[in-house]
């Protein structure tokens, strides 16, 4: 009974789960190296950065917004972390300040998105440029190496499980919990569903929206710390274009850009799906020139499958209401 409440969440991510499964079966048959423990583990580690950010982005999109500055936030946070660590040598300090900065940058996005009723696409495009510019200014576009020893978030493991995977699971669980069990989660879906109704019900629209963007900022910060630990340092092209990968993962996961509903789990599976495409191409030793084409085709197929189920649903809906209409007029 309890889980029944989230029936529609299950429906949201079913398409991507099936697509992922199909892709896995295909790759298992096509490449002997694919279905190994080590490869599965590295797929999950690779997916962690996108997946963690996709959780944050799902919140923003459910609330009826969008944030295209998260790649820039990731870059800015990584710069702050690297600079601060190099300057002070204190890992906890650099970590703490970075995460707090992530929260602040996200909150700024949320505040701008709600305060000025411009579309958040425009406001976050502006903050994208600002955050990226500030980071370039901060670092002088220089690469800053981060010692491997402190890259625990990216390279460490706990009880034999790589830390990025643990973080991804933790963020997913927290993400699902927040949206399903808390008042905030319900309010967020409500605000995304109908802002007018939310206003009429005097829900705290401002607080809820800012919190969603703030979570987006925080997840981008966390993802950034994982990424630079893994890459071995800060590079100035980090995070470029990442927002589109993240949004793609969220949409593949069954979350509609119109807001009001969505699936955290779907977004995480969507991120894994995207990594699987590249992993598969690598496994098959594909020609480097087919990568983009294959990526595009697989994405298109996934989206078409998702839309087909959507169309079927709406057809039924129209049929139902048409039958009702026939009752009133003739």
């Amino acid at each position: 009974m309890k889980l029944n409440n989230y029936k529609f969440f299950e429906q949201n991510w079913s398409a991507i789960a099936v697509a992922t499964l199909v892709l896995c079966v295909f790759l298992t048959i096509a490449s002997p190296a694919f279905m190994s423990f080590a490869n599965m583990q590295s797929v999950l580690v690779q997916a962690s950065v996108t997946a963690i950010m996709a959780v944050g982005m799902t919140y923003i999109i459910i609330g009826g917004g969008i944030d295209i500055s998260i790649g820039a936030i990731l870059f800015f946070i990584s710069s702050v972390f690297a600079e601060l660590f190099v300057a002070t040598g204190s890992y906890p300090l650099a970590l703490g300040v970075s995460l707090i900065t992530g929260v602040l940058l996200g909150a700024v996005n949320g505040f701008l998105a709600i305060k000025f009723k411009v579309t958040p696409l425009i406001t976050t495009l502006a903050t994208y440029t600002i955050y990226r510019g500030m980071a370039i200014h901060l670092t002088g576009a220089q690469n800053i190496p981060v010692p491997r020893e402190i890259g625990y978030l990216g390279n460490g493991s706990f009880l034999g499980i790589p830390v990025p995977i643990l973080l991804m699971v933790l963020v997913t669980i927290l993400g699902v919990y927040l949206i399903q069990k808390t008042r905030f989660g319900l309010y967020l879906r409500a605000v995304g569903s109908s802002e007018e109704s939310a206003h009429e019900s005097s829900l705290p629209i401002m607080r809820v929206t800012v919190l969603a963007y703030l979570i987006g900022g925080l997840t981008a910060a966390l993802a950034g710390l994982i990424l630079i630990a893994r890459v071995g340092g800060l590079q100035s092209d980090i995070g470029i274009g990442l927002e589109f990968t993240v949004i793609a993962a969220v949409i593949l996961g069954g979350t509609k850009l119109s807001g009001g509903s969505g699936s955290i789990l779907g977004s995480v599976i969507g991120a894994i799906f995207l990594v699987l495409i590249d992993n598969g191409l690598n496994m098959l030793n594909a020609s480097p020139y087919v990568y983009d084409t294959v990526r595009g085709i697989v994405l298109l197929v996934a989206v078409i499958v998702d839309r087909l189920s959507e169309v079927r649903k709406s057809r039924e809906l129209i049929k139902n209401s048409a039958m009702k209409m026939r009752g009133t007029t003739s």
Partner: peptide, 22 residues
């Protein structure tokens, strides 16, 4: 040969994957 678009994160994933396969 694997493309990386000059992106270290992609290079990282590609290297991991390549070593899984080979």
């Amino acid at each position: 040969s694997v493309p990386t678009d000059w992106d270290s994160a992609k290079a990282l994933a590609a290297t991991e994957n390549a070593f899984q396969a080979n």
